[in-house]
Each structure stands twice: as structure tokens, then as C-alpha cells.
Design a protein around this nucleic acid. Sequence first.
DNA 1: CGCGACCTGCAT
DNA 2: ATGCAGGTCGCG
Length: 261
Amino acid sequence: MPELPEVEMAAALARRVATGRTITSVLVRHRAQRRSLPPRDARALRGARVTAVERRGKAQLFRLSDGRALLVHFRMTGDWLHPVPRRLPATARLVFTFDDGSRLALDDPRALSVISLCDGPPASRAGPDAIAPELSPTYLAAALARRRIPIKVALLDQSIVAGIGNIYASEALWRSRIDPRTPSNRLEPPRVRALVRAIRATMASALKYQERYYGREAREPANRFAVYDREGKRCRRCGSTISRIVQAGRSSYFCRSCQKR
DNA sequence: CGCGACCTGCAT
DNA sequence: ATGCAGGTCGCG
């Protein structure tokens, strides 16, 4: 579930559980997670106190009182599980135990999540966060002018904007009426402005959705997305049929009649 | 650039 | 059985 809004909610949960706590043990249950967090690193986490949990794009950063940091990336299907049931679900790939006895588990059916221990604040070449004021039309226009990749592919590039993934890229382009195939350097300033507004609106509404439904299983509104995964259905704005194309190996959904190049 | 690899589960 | 999935990296 993890694009910016989902990670934001997950980070808030981790913050509530872990801030001010000392890690007493780290259990790594899957080989894939052992690759990024080898046993010696898992052991080296014992006794570390978590001073803060931050989010940068889709990554979460657990700051430790000794200056080190734990970097967590959910990739495709990761999420936090809390509280952790007595009987661990098979998909619980890693479990933290804290000094107050509480536990926090990384739940990830596909086990693609990455957790790694850094000596200091990790250097990142991520662009501005999708909900940060630094994502200005001026900044984005300049970044887009430097390439000529399709705008949908540009939105997935975390070094341009951090936090947007495959779903919200399609959603933001639909909102701003931009064809996902438009070369990034051919977007005129007014359309870049519209795109920035659309990104913010898309993230805001997803955040609102997350606040309502995060951690609950049932009752997902069927109309959550305007275009994502709606191939063949009707466009809510103009009634035409939603198309699916593949860009950079990922599905893009859009309305050919109201999204223009 | 696109494409497979990394993993597992789900729908067809 | 096949193909697909909300992400990223490294390869040719």
C-alpha cells in the first residue's frame, strides 16, 4: 500500500509506538530482509533509543539517540502491524520489541521491503516531497524541462518529486487533464502549475482517505480512484472510456478525450 | 531507455 | 498455468 499518503500514516503509527522507546530485540524472519539488515546489524540495534520517526518520500527514518538511523522502505506491499498478535502472521517479516514490552512488526506478503542501518542521516538524492512547499511550479518546470521523458514516467522519478507512485501519478494527471505520454519538456507553465495543484489535491484527498481507513480492513469506497485500475470504465468527467497503456513497464490509466498532450 | 530481478499471492 | 501487482536497482 505504500505511496506517500500510506507511508505517512504508517510513519505516524511507528512514531506513536517507537518514539522514546529503546529497542530490546529485532527478529528478522525472512531472508530478503536479512539481506538489507544482516544479523550483526539487527543485534547492533539492541539498546538503541528511538528519538524520532520521520518520513522522506516513501521512506521512513527512525532516528536513534546515538546518531545512527534505521531506514525503512515498504516497496510494494509492506506495512506496519500493531499491535502484534501473539501468534505472528506468516507475513510478519520482522519484529521489533521495545523496552515497554510493546512490539511493532513489518508485515509484507511479498517480502520486498528493505530495512537498513545507517551510521548517520542517510544521504538521499530525493527531490522535494510531493506535499512540501518546495515542490513549486517553478521548481517542477525547471526539473521537467531538463528531460523529455513522458510526464507519467517523470512523476515516478523520486529524484524529481518524492512520494508519488504508480496510482497517484495517474490520478494527478487525470486531475490536471494531462496526457501521461506528454514529453516532460513540453509542458507549458500553466499546465505545470495545474499539475502541482493536482499533485497536492491528490495527496490531500488520499491522506484524508488514509486517516479514515488506515488499519481497517473493510468498507473501501469503490470510487476511490478516478482512473487507476479502471480500464474500460467510464470517465467521471466526460463519460468516455478509460484507457490503459504501459509506460516504463507499468500500467498507466487515463482518459483519451479529456487528458491532452 | 526498457527489462529482469527481487518475492508472494491473487485473479484469470 | 499465466500474468499481474501501490517500488527500486542494476543490467545491457
